[in-house]
């Protein structure tokens, strides 16, 4: 009995240390991936993709002419379809300027990663939006769907798409 107790007491510090470091790394990952992103406008992807026929993600999430991903759309992009002179849209967009981004991105890459959407989506490659962002097109809320994007996930996809897995492809 006494032997078991001293045995357990011996391992207790290691267990506590492992638990604390797990929490610390969890917090660090959450911070790096921006889990607490602000979503000031409620947005329903499903109605936009099905009812209004915006089936292509690139209608709102577009590329710049130099290949850069434009990221999350501004209110000005919304106003291309939503008539800002209508009474109900005026209420909806009250407090948002033309260049405001009322939502932040969940899927942020850390500073040390160079990631280009166009390199995996357009360069004879067939990556899908779903594979990294989850089934966002079918979501009805602004909640996060997919978890963290670990480096192993990137590397699995690189292997499948026959892109080099050398460090320098993404890191500088």
């Amino acid at each position: 009995m006494k032997g078991t107790r001293s045995f357990l007491l011996f391992f207790l510090p290691f267990v506590i240390f492992a638990y604390i470091s797990f929490i610390v790394f969890q917090q660090a990952c959450d911070y790096a991936m921006n889990v607490q992103a602000k979503k000031l406008l409620p947005f329903n992807h499903r109605t936009h993709t099905t009812t209004y026929g915006a089936s292509d993600c690139e209608i709102c999430h577009s590329y710049d002419s130099n290949g850069r991903f434009n990221g999350i759309p501004t209110v000005a992009v919304c106003k291309q379809c939503h008539d800002p002179n209508k009474a109900n849209t005026q209420v909806f967009f009250a407090g948002f300027g033309d260049n405001d981004k009322p939502w932040e991105s969940f899927a942020q890459q850390p500073d040390l990663v160079y990631f280009s959407h166009i390199a995996v989506m357009k360069n004879e490659k067939k990556a899908q939006c779903i594979s990294c962002h989850g089934d966002k097109g079918n979501s009805t809320t602004t909640a996060k769907i997919k978890g963290k994007m670990a480096m192993g996930t990137c590397m699995d996809c690189h292997t499948a798409l026959k892109i080099s897995n050398a460090c320098t492809v993404c890191h500088d």
Binding site: Y63, D64, S65, N66, G67, R68, D111, L112, V113, Y114, S116, I118, A119, K122, N123, T168, H171, D172
Partner: peptide, 29 residues
């Protein structure tokens, strides 16, 4: 385009490889 290296690491010239990545993206576009 370039990340700020942390303390305690080695850095060196890589012939501005990030510019090459940028030009490659432009070409794909």
């Amino acid at each position: 385009d370039v990340s700020i290296a942390s303390r305690g690491t080695m850095v060196k010239c890589t012939f501005c490889s990030h510019i090459w990545k940028r030009e490659r993206d432009k070409a794909i576009a």
